[in-house]
Structures are given as structure tokens and as C-alpha cells.
Simulated assay, not measured.
Amino acid sequence: MGEPLKPLRIGVVGAGKISGAYLSTLDRLTSVRLTAVTDLDRSRARAVADRAGGEAALAPTVADLVARDDVDAVLNLTIPAAHADVALAALGAGKHVYGEKPLATNRKEADAVLTAARAAGLRVGCAPDTVLGTGTQTARKAVDEGLLGRPVAATAFMTTAGHETWHPDPEFYYRPGGGPLLDMGPYYLSALVHLLGPVVKVTGASSRPRAERTVGSGPRAGHTFPVEVDTHVTGVLEHVGGALSTLVMSFDVRAARLPRIEVHGSEASLSVPDPNTFDGAVEINRGGGWETLPVSAGFPDADRGVGLADLAEAVAAGRPHRASGELAAHVLDVMLTLMDAADQGRSLPVSSTCERPAPVTDQ
């Protein structure tokens, strides 16, 4: 037997709330090891370092962290506006990078990150990795095995009354770069690409029913603020194989009984669980009622960070990783093109594409 593979050494940039979900996963993975952390708030960075039992160094700045010899890859958990800058700093220092969604805030930044990675021979990974869990992957296996016949259509719905109902500081959701599509769309679009392949054309419409919103909880409850982006977005996506997906992303629906995702084929229909979670029941209807499919694919008991673990194992094995920068860039392009189509009132081609990621079949 050969020697066990050395874990990929991870430096974390950004020690905010989402870092806790990642760290709890990293704690139980053998393919990665936390070695350094930095944050603008030093106390938050120290808390993460302490959680690692003293094994993670406290880096003063991003530049210090990416320059460390004991960091192989950077886990980028900063705010979206900083995603591209941190990724480029990591790649410039010879480090792989895996980040929270979105990959960047615009196409130019996303292209710059991917170009830098290709030039340096490094990996770029990006959330969401929820689509690697047993929910979406079991559904994908059903599609791939032909249980639905020829895929014809899909529907994807994310509807809520708005994040101001629970978030104490919700303004950023309603400013440029926010809105329901850019906030939650990556989960749904990543799942649809896994299920049906990349998107080649979009048609869109959007609206902004309310000019102001009111904070509903916390010390600022009752404070009103302006809405600067459209908050109800509807789109039709044409996939490379011809299937059409109908997408609704909304901060304007008080209550709904809508499925998260359904895929309809020539022989059957499939109910897919919430793509913001890793598992959930997958149901099929062949015409005689709904039945639950057994779990047959996906990483079991997965949580935030499984995409980083897959990247680490892919580096060691010399294979493509699944939560790739190319997929994230395509998803970003689809969302931005959909918003352009809504603004212009017409269908638009999607200029980018990506490989459909390899399925997770280790069951």
C-alpha cells in the first residue's frame, strides 16, 4: 500500500457566520486541514483559530495569509464584493481557491479569476456544494438512467415575503448585487445544470412591486429603506439538450404551495428537494401516483465544505472537481443574462457554457 495522501492545507479568509458551517465540516474531513485564518475583525479570526485547537495561525492580512508556506488553498468566505479580489490574491500567490457564491459580482471579474487560474495551473472552486448531496444527485441519477424518458421541462420556485421579515440588517439584499435571483439563484441554477446541462438561451421578466421595505426584527425593527433592485423575477431557460426550465425567484410572495424543483420527461415526472439543502426525498410519478426513490447517489451526511473536500481529492487524483469555477461563472452569466433579458423585454443567448459536472455515484 502507498503512503496516505497528505491533506490540503487551508487558509480561511473571512470568519463571519457562514464560517461556522464550513468549520464543522472541515473538522471531520481527512482530505483538508485548517492551518491559517484572517479576518478584518481580529477577534473573529482568533475565535476560529482557537476552535482549531491552536493548530491554525492567525494571519494579520490577506496578503500575509496567501504568502504562507503552510497554505495550499484559500477558503474565501468574504462578502461578495471581495470575492474576486481575494481569489486573485490567492491565485497570484500560487494557491488554489474555493469560495462562497457568487464567484464574482460581474462577468469581467469572473473571467479574470478563471483566466488567472488557468495561467497558473491552479483550481478554482465555488459554492453551492449542496447539489453534491444525496437529494440532487439521486434526482440526477434518475434523469441519467432514463427513468423520466426524454427530459422536456423543469420548474424551479423560490418564493418568500422577503428577508427583511427575519434579517435585522436586510438592506444589502435590496441593493445592486442583491435581489432574489442573485441571492438564491445559484442553488437552483446549479441544480438545473446538474440535472439538465448548461443553459443556452433565456427569456425574462421582472418587477419591483414595492419601493420601500420595513425591517421586521431586531433593534432596527420598523425602520424603512428603499428597494433598489427588482424583487420578483421570472425566466424561461433553454438547456443545451432542448429542455425548458421555468424559474420564479421572488421576495414578494406571502405564501405558496409550490415545489422547489420538478423535472418533467416524456415518461415520468420527478420531484427534487430544496437545492439549498444536501438531502431530502426524491419522488417520481410514472402516472400512477408519487413514489419515493431510494437514495442512490451523492455524498451522504454532507454539509457546507464538501465541495472543498472534493476539490482536495480531485487535486490529489488529477481529476476535475465538481463545484468548479467554470460552473459558477456560467451560473453567474445565466443570472446576469436573465436580468438583461428582463430589462430589454426579449430573449437573449447565454454566451458562456460549462461541462456538466461528473455525478457523485459513490453509494
Rank of each mutant, 00 (worst) to 15 (best):
T165P: 00
R118L: 07
T130S: 15
L75F: 06
H163N: 06
D111A: 14
A112N: 05
T138K: 01
L132D: 07
D169R: 12
K95L: 06
A116E: 11
R118C: 03
A127C: 13
T160L: 07
V124I: 13
E100T: 14
E109I: 00
L88S: 02
V131A: 13
C126P: 05
R123W: 05
K101D: 07
H83G: 07
C126W: 03
P176V: 07
P128N: 12
G162Q: 04
R140Y: 06
V97A: 09
A119T: 13
A87Q: 00
A89G: 09
G92D: 09
L114Q: 00
V131H: 11
A156L: 08
A154R: 02
V97N: 02
A119W: 03
D69F: 00
G149P: 02
V113T: 05
F172P: 01
A127D: 12
V97P: 01
A93K: 08
G94Y: 06
V113G: 01
G162D: 02
T115V: 14
T159C: 14
A116C: 08
E100F: 02
V66E: 05
A117F: 02
D129T: 15
G92Y: 04
A161F: 00
A93L: 10
A81S: 13
V131W: 04
V124D: 03
R175F: 06
A161S: 14
H96D: 15
T78N: 01
E109R: 05
G99A: 12
A93E: 08
A110Q: 03
T105K: 02
V71E: 06
Y173L: 14
A119S: 15
N76W: 01
D85I: 00
F157D: 09
E171I: 12
A82H: 05
V71L: 09
Y174I: 07
G149M: 03
H83T: 12
Q137N: 10
A89R: 06
L103I: 13
L91M: 13
